[in-house]
Simulated scan of single mutants.
Amino acid sequence: MRWTSMIAIYALFWVLSAVFVLPFGLRTPDETGDSVTPGHAESAPVNFSGKRVIKRATVLGLVLFALFYLNYVNGWIVAADLDLSRLYPGDPK
């Protein structure tokens, strides 16, 4: 696998991880006892930290990419394993 492909695949895993970890650890004003500032939604988090999301996404993205790369090298799951036609026997025509 070329290094440019590795960077692109890691970037995809990182974005997926960032979307996944984004809501974890957030607290609303109701949960923290803070007052809601006029003009803000009541559901808006009061403790959002972009650095925390970046760190968590980086770690999770590295783990997912490592699993992907190990599968690529060792061939644990290949495209033939994902053949769904055997679930539906017979010709659909």
Rank of each mutant, 00 (worst) to 15 (best):
residue 57 A to R: 02
residue 75 G to E: 02
residue 30 D to R: 12
residue 36 V to Y: 04
residue 44 A to S: 12
residue 31 E to G: 07
residue 77 I to Q: 01
residue 3 W to K: 11
residue 79 A to L: 08
residue 38 P to W: 04
residue 78 V to L: 07
residue 93 K to Q: 14
residue 41 A to T: 11
residue 29 P to I: 06
residue 27 R to E: 13
residue 11 A to L: 15
residue 50 G to R: 08
residue 29 P to E: 09
residue 87 L to Q: 05
residue 50 G to N: 07
residue 61 G to A: 13
residue 2 R to Q: 11
residue 40 H to V: 09
residue 23 P to C: 11
residue 83 D to W: 05
residue 4 T to H: 14
residue 2 R to F: 10
residue 75 G to V: 06
residue 52 R to P: 03
residue 55 K to D: 11
residue 29 P to D: 09
residue 93 K to A: 15
residue 87 L to W: 07
residue 26 L to Y: 04
residue 9 I to E: 01
residue 8 A to C: 11
residue 86 R to I: 12
residue 59 V to Y: 11
residue 54 I to P: 04
residue 6 M to S: 03
residue 46 V to Y: 02
residue 52 R to H: 12
residue 8 A to P: 00
residue 23 P to L: 11
residue 37 T to A: 13
residue 31 E to Y: 08
residue 84 L to D: 10
residue 42 E to Q: 08
residue 56 R to N: 11
residue 64 L to S: 02
residue 81 D to A: 01
residue 3 W to R: 12
residue 92 P to R: 13
residue 14 W to C: 06
residue 79 A to C: 04
residue 56 R to L: 10
residue 64 L to G: 03
residue 66 A to F: 05
residue 25 G to L: 07
residue 76 W to T: 00
residue 82 L to V: 05
residue 68 F to V: 01
residue 93 K to C: 15
residue 32 T to A: 01
residue 38 P to V: 04
residue 17 S to H: 03
residue 8 A to R: 10
residue 78 V to P: 00
residue 54 I to E: 12
residue 55 K to I: 14
residue 35 S to P: 02
residue 19 V to N: 13
residue 9 I to Y: 00
residue 88 Y to L: 13
residue 37 T to P: 01
residue 74 N to R: 04
residue 28 T to W: 05
residue 84 L to I: 15
residue 32 T to I: 08
residue 41 A to F: 14
residue 76 W to K: 00
residue 4 T to A: 12
residue 11 A to G: 15
residue 42 E to Y: 06
residue 70 L to N: 05
residue 39 G to M: 06
residue 74 N to E: 03
residue 63 V to E: 05
residue 53 V to T: 12
residue 81 D to Q: 03
residue 84 L to V: 14
residue 78 V to D: 05
residue 58 T to C: 09
residue 85 S to W: 07
residue 63 V to L: 13
residue 31 E to L: 08
residue 93 K to S: 15
residue 83 D to P: 01
residue 11 A to N: 10
residue 72 Y to G: 02
residue 51 K to G: 13
residue 29 P to N: 07
residue 43 S to H: 07
residue 29 P to S: 07
residue 45 P to E: 03
residue 34 D to K: 15
residue 78 V to G: 05
residue 51 K to D: 12
residue 9 I to S: 02
residue 58 T to D: 09
residue 49 S to D: 14
residue 87 L to P: 05
residue 29 P to C: 11
residue 90 G to Y: 00
residue 53 V to H: 03
residue 49 S to I: 06
residue 7 I to G: 02
residue 60 L to E: 00
residue 25 G to Q: 10
residue 63 V to Q: 07
residue 67 L to M: 13
residue 19 V to S: 15
residue 6 M to N: 01
residue 2 R to C: 11
residue 83 D to M: 06
residue 19 V to Q: 15
residue 55 K to Y: 12
residue 1 M to S: 04
residue 70 L to Q: 07
residue 15 V to L: 13
residue 80 A to Q: 15
residue 79 A to W: 05
residue 19 V to G: 12
